[in-house]
Amino acid sequence: MNSDPQTYSSVVSIRNLHKSFGSNHVLRGFHLDVAAGENVAVMGKSGSGKSVLIKCIIGLEPIDEGQLIVLGKDVPKLSVRELDELRADVGFQFQGSALYDSMTVRENLEFPLRRHLEKIKGYRAEDLVKEALENVGLLNAIDLLPSELSGGMKKRIALARTIIMRPKLILYDEPTSGLDPITAREISRLIVDIQKQYQAASVVITHDLACARITGNRLVILSDGKNYIEGKYEEVERMTDPVVHSFFT
């Protein structure tokens, strides 16, 4: 694949992004750059358009206006086939895990492989599945159905399903929502481990401070459809701006 990190400066480059649903103008001029191997945590109130943002990045939602370049490709202009190729390099972790109910864990993990056989040339699907499961520490759950898993296990399996394609960019939608603080911390650490192991850049959408602190090299606060503040977690935490401050109290 030609999507070598050296050929573009940043993995994600968003300029002046606008997106609205009917009369609800969710994103109004959002900017974001994600460097290769960097973890960016995006925080915002619920309904502020965080989820919409990453769905735009992967092309699940069409954008109204602006520039959106992912892995050197102009997302709004891609054909269906090109979009599929791009998506093979971008992982997406859904808020509710989105495991396929009717399939076992193994089948869930094999599912993304079926359409991207060229990516796994030289590997056996079985080995890839086992490797991914080992990386999230759930190899023994390989033949279980999603309904037999706990919330935290589902998140891990979903993560395994995301990393099995060895993506260059991983988008996390509320990775710790609905989990107890201890499990949430485990998941956050896992995200950091994966970042190191796969050298992948990530965008983590969250409203969980702990998660943002652990996973994010950089923190972006999304408010009124714009990136209100950007900076390292510690810098942002010390700011006295009332909007920023409301997140940390």
Binding site: K55, I58, L60, V80, D84, R87, A88, V90, F92, F94, Q95, G96, S97, A98, L99, Y100, D101, S102, F111, P112, R114, R115, H116, R161, M165
Partner: peptide, 21 residues
Amino acid sequence: AELASMKVTEQIDAMEVSGTN
């Protein structure tokens, strides 16, 4: 019901991002 629950739990979106129409 099956498709609706898949839609609600974003499984349809997950399929789309994993390269399956």
